[in-house]
Design a protein around this nucleic acid. Structure first.
Lengths: 250, 250
DNA sequence: TGCGCCCTTCCGTTGAGCGGAAGCAGGCCG
DNA sequence: CGGCCTGCTTCCGCTCAACGGAAGGGCGCA
């Protein structure tokens, strides 16, 4: 009897990972027998590995006997720099949007009370903008920033509205009550706009990118005026849905 | 030379888990050498294990050479039923609050447009309430519900405010504009109250339980009147901070 | 160029890991 | 109550996957 008949390339590590790989959105709680079947392990092997994973906290056994993902993996998952994934996933969508509009397209996430730009695509014919990958701009004066602010935890919104709102152009919205009203409209309309509030000659349209009900980013486009708004919002939404679909574990 | 001199109880699985355990909020990106040191492995061993973890997607190597938690663990972490953890962690705090007040104390999370009660502690002298563990009540008519709604994604708030708000007592707030104004105050005040809006004779005070800036639950107390509000809010906040501290990976 | 740091590869040795077999526990049904 | 089924749980002889010391490579910096 060989020690294992599983074939080459099968290590303990790969077996452990096979066990973890059994869990997905449709299989969040699994019995030991189900894990063994799905991971293609014998019952005693699965028993040993699952036992150790449970002892460490990677898995947890529930009252009815099924195993679920445990606290330690939840903690670890929170450490993943999803933003880099986000940029990689979103990049082709940004390219497509640029190709269709020749306008500057950018992607941002909320970083405290600023919008952090992860990526930007623009060309010679695009409206000049101050955003570039890695730069931060205030939430209140940019399209993506307003989207991120509208969908941020309430404490963030309160913090932004309580501080002085800096003016970049004569059109920048600097009254908290006016901004707050805009934020309510943004959640209803599903998109945000700016009209020369950050840069003279530059207007923007932005929408949220949401995964599992959480807004993780905002996708924006910069145009000289908002006349094409009705056409651009659906295009942005299609791209945002594409980005979200590629981000979520479905 | 023995195959390993690490001592009893050290398995491949435990070594893999030691590698994963190197990562925490203060060490989100680690070189192979750092991982080997922190996991108490030799460099070749760490190299083999990390290589396999990276191939599977549990870790990812960044451009500058450091390893970070990868997408697969982010995906798995999302599957963890944190709510059960939450109940276990919160239980002693709920008991303490009950012991100090003899009032009904409960913990809820948002489940769609409802408050899902995870736990409740009450006694014979407590005000009778309709909440019990496992039950769901509307967000707009309960203290914990209002807290959860105020801190929910904007889309949820919009959904609740757009639907008819059911009346349970003559005091239930059923006008969307009035509820919306209350929600704004809740974010400023840091707590919510109800005055016989769910059950006659029952008022409540509730606060958010937040982890890393995200409201994950609400902690509430039911009293016959709000006279002791100024005393109870700090007590609730201390308990909420204790719960959050035990929940977060710090 | 030399040095230091961070890997990356190699291979003889051996004990950790394997799985078939046996057994246990609990629930259900006749 | 006894038998059957399901889901584990434990055991132990065998063997090859895993180990780590040693050697070497690549890169950046003074």
């Amino acid at each position: 009897m060989p020690r294992t008949n599983a074939g080459p390339g099968v290590t303990v590590t790969s077996r452990v990972l096979s066990v973890l790989g059994c869990f997905d959105a449709e299989h969040t709680s699994l019995t030991l027998t189900e894990i063994a079947l799905r991971a293609e392990l014998t019952l005693p092997t699965a028993h040993r590995l699952v036992g150790e994973l449970a002892a460490w906290g990677a898995l947890r056994r529930e009252r009815h006997g099924g195993y679920v993902i445990g606290r330690r993996l939840w903690d670890l998952g929170l450490l993943a720099p999803v933003q880099t994934d986000l940029r990689d996933v979103a990049s082709p969508f940004l390219q497509d949007l640029y190709g269709a509009t020749l306008a500057t397209v950018h992607l941002a996430v909320r970083d405290g009370v600023n919008a952090l730009y992860l990526d930007r695509v623009s060309g010679h014919a695009s409206v000049p903008v101050v955003s570039k990958a890695g730069s931060r701009l205030p939430l209140h004066s940019t399209g993506v920033g307003k989207v991120l602010l509208a969908h941020a935890p309430a404490a963030v919104r309160h913090e932004v509205l309580a501080a002085p709102l800096e003016r970049f152009t004569p059109y920048t919205i600097a009254q908290p009550s006016r901004l707050a009203r805009q934020l309510e409209h943004i959640t209803q309309d599903g998109y945000a706009t700016t009209t020369e509030e950050m840069t003279l000659g530059a207007c923007s349209i932005a929408i949220p990118v949401s995964v599992n009900g959480h807004t993780v980013a905002s996708l924006g486009i910069v145009v000289p005026h908002l006349r094409a708004c009705a056409r651009l919002v659906p295009a942005l939404q299609v791209a945002a849905q594409g980005i979200a679909r590629n981000l979520s574990p479905g």
